[in-house]
Design a protein around this nucleic acid. Structure first.
Length: 255
DNA sequence: ATGGTTGTAACACAA
């Protein structure tokens, strides 16, 4: 089973790229973030025609997450456990082929000194609580998404310049480690050890051309699922295309 | 270079 995650940065602006990529990459499951449309504007029918079922949680203009799956999805749930249906659209999950799949869009945080930075840290703690309420470390489960955090020095283009900056701040690393202490591992690092493998490049200042990127999109899996992971790849091709998302898709393959 | 670019939206904000 191939499970992919991609921050598409507007499903409307990225419509053609996303459908071209799905047809080429043929993921069994695609978790999307930053769809930026209300549910009525999501291309549900078009995905159905390609053989995917769809679950989405959208909102106007910002955020928005979705899961498209070639296998039936059951037990779709939306939002953090304490959202009460009122939060931003940043989390959706469903069970697919016996695997609990999360599509998560972690708050950006704006800057370490901005109040929303602490919201980002708290959001990760609430995500852990949501996991604890519906799963155990023995549940075959993966949390796919845009974490807006580069975990380690090898995940950033310039660890010295990035030290203490947004996406690479000690507080973010602590919050991520605490989430992973639920019993999650970054399956990308089971298969790749080298530095300089990125999933996001800022639109500004020619970051992609300079390969000034970060690895902030990943798949965290519980042990029973991680043991079945045979490959993880970042597909840079869509980032090289015309009118790209600033993120590249990440594809994890499981036996 | 406390800049730069993109998407949504509306004359700014989020990323």
């Amino acid at each position: 089973m191939k499970i992919a995650t991609w921050n598409v940065n507007s499903i409307r602006a990225r419509h053609d790229s996303v459908f071209a990529w799905i047809s080429r990459a043929e993921p069994d499951v695609l978790c999307m973030q930053e769809t930026k449309v209300v549910d009525d504007d999501f291309p549900t029918d078009e995905l159905l025609r390609l053989g995917y079922t769809v679950a989405m949680s959208g909102q106007k203009s910002y955020n928005g997450v979705a899961i498209a799956s070639r296998l039936p999805m059951t037990d779709v749930a939306i939002g953090l456990h304490d959202d009460a249906g009122a939060g931003e659209s940043r989390l959706i999950r469903a069970t697919v082929g016996g695997v609990r799949v999360y599509s998560a869009y972690v708050p950006n945080g704006k800057s370490p000194t901005n109040p929303s930075f602490k919201d980002k840290l708290r959001w990760l703690g609430r995500l852990k609580q949501t996991l604890q309420k519906e799963a155990t470390p023995e549940t075959p489960l993966c949390v796919c998404g845009d974490y807006n955090i580069a975990p380690e020095a090898r995940d950033v283009f310039d660890p010295v310049a990035m030290a203490g900056q947004l996406h690479f701040h000690p507080d973010e690393h602590r919050a991520l480690a605490d989430l992973m202490a639920f019993g999650l591992t970054d399956v990308f690092r089971k298969h790749h050890q080298e530095a300089g493998l990125f999933s996001w490049w800022d639109y500004r200042a020619g970051a992609f051309r300079r390969d000034a990127g970060l690895r902030i999109d990943y798949v965290l899996a519980t042990a029973p699922l991680a043991a079945r992971c045979t490959a993880v790849e970042i597909d840079v091709a869509p980032r090289e295309a015309e009118k790209p998302s600033d993120h590249a898709p990440v594809i994890a393959t499981f036996d």
